[in-house]
Design a protein around this nucleic acid. Sequence first.
DNA 1: GGAACTCGCCAC
DNA 2: AAACGTGGCGAGTTCC
Length: 464
Amino acid sequence: MNFNPRTDEAYQLLHDGILALSRMEQQGIRVDVDYIESKKAHLTRKIERLENQFKDSDFFKHWQKSVKGEINFYSNPQLSNYLYKIKKVKVFKETMSGQGSTDKETLTQLNIPELDDLLKIRNLKKLRDTYLESYLREQVNGYIHPFFNLHLVVTYRSSSSNPNLQNVPKRDEESMQICRGAIYPRPEHQLLEVDFKSIEVSINACYNKDSTLIKYVSNPKSDMHADMAKEIFALDEFQKDCHNVLRQAAKNGFVFPEFYGDYYGNCAENMACGWGKLPQSIWKKGEGVEIGSFIPLFLSDHLISKGITSFNKFTNHVKKIEQDFWENRFPEYAAWKERWWSLYKKYGYIDLLTGFRCQGVMSKNEVINTPAQGTAFHCLLWCIIEIDKIMLKERWDTKIISQVHDSVIFDVNPGELDHVVKVVRKICCEELRKAWKWIIVPLDVEMELSPVDKSWVEKEKINA
DNA sequence: GGAACTCGCCAC
DNA sequence: AAACGTGGCGAGTTCC
C-alpha cells in the first residue's frame, strides 16, 4: 500500500511532526538504573525457582524421556510437538501455519498445573528481557531515548522502538508495577499524561456522521458501553458500581470488535471467556452447564432465568444484538461502511480528512479501519506540534517526552503545571477544532499526574 | 553466520 | 460467504 500527502497542509504536518518528535527523542526519559538492576536480579531468582520446580515435575520428566537429546522448554515448537504428537492432546486452537497452539489461552485451558508454572515463567521472562533489559541497554546516563517513527505504520499512526515505549504493560497490575516503576520524571519533576477520550470513535463519527454515534460522543452523560452491557447481559438497569466489569466486557468484547469488523461469533466467545473473572457477588455459578464443546463455562442464574441457558443460545442472543446494533442503532454508520468500501473498489484509494491518500491492495476491514486510526493520530500529532511551539517560545522547563497514539506524556516542572494544563487543554479541545473544521464533535482529554519524584506507577487522575 | 521466518505477547 | 485493525520485540528455528 502506498500513502501520499495530497495537500501542502498534510505534508507540513509530517514535516513539523518529525521535528517535534525528534526534540522529544533528544529530551529522553529518566529511568532508575538501580531499581532496574535490583528488579532484574529479583526476577531472575524467581524465574530460577520456578524453572527448578518445573524441572522436578512429572510432566517435565515424561517430556524429557520421550525425546532424544536435551529439551528446551521455552521452545514452542518442541512443546507443541510433545503435547499434540506425543501426548496426543486434542488440538484446541491452531496457529497461523496450522500447528497446535501453545499460547496462554490454550495452555490454561488444558488444565495441567505444570503449564501454569510455565506461563508464569514466560510472563516474568517477558518483563525482564523485553522491558527492564531494554531500558538498561538503551539508557545513557539514566535516560532512554526511544525513537518515534512517522513513516512505518500503514494506517498513518506512529511507531516506537529502541525501546518501544508504546507497549509498556498497563492492564496487568503486577507487570505494570514492575515496568512502570522504572520510569521517572527528572529530579523535582512530575509525569503528566494527557489522553484523548475515545478519540477513535469520535473521529469515526466525523467520517460516517451517524447521528446516534454523534450523540454518544457529544454527550458526556451518555454511555454506549453501559447501554450495550444492558442488552448483552439482559439487565433492566445498569448499576455503575457493581456492573462496571460487565461494561468492560461489552466494550472490549463487543463494541470495539464490532467497530473493527469482527462478528457476533467471536464476540460471544470473547465475552464468555471474560466471565471467568467476574466476581461471585454478581455472577453466581450455575449448575455446571457446559457451554459449547470445549469452553468449561458456567452461566449465571440470571441469564438462565432470561432463557439464555447455553453457549449456543448466548451466541444467538449476541447475533440478534449485532443485527440490532448495525440495523437500528447505527444504521448511518453501517451505510457509510458500504459507501466507503464501494468508493475504494471504484477508485482504488481512500482519502483521509487530514489530506492523505492511501492506495494499494486493502481488505474491507482495512479500508474501514484506516481512516479512524490514521486521522485520530493526526489529531494528536497536530496538538504535539502546537504545544511544542509554545513550549519553545515560552522556554518551558516542562518537556514532552513520549506519545502513544492518543496520549502524550510530559515531564513537568511543578511550578509550571497549572499553565501547562491550561495550554494543553486549550490546544487539544479548542484550537484543534478551529484548525480542522471537519471535526464535528467535541473532543475531551483526561489527565493523570504522578507526585514529585515518584515513578509512573504513582500517577493519579486529576481534574484539570 | 546472518537473514528471514514463526510464535507469543505487550500496547492502542 | 466470511468473519478483528495497527505496531515492536525476544526466542527459537530454518534457510541460504
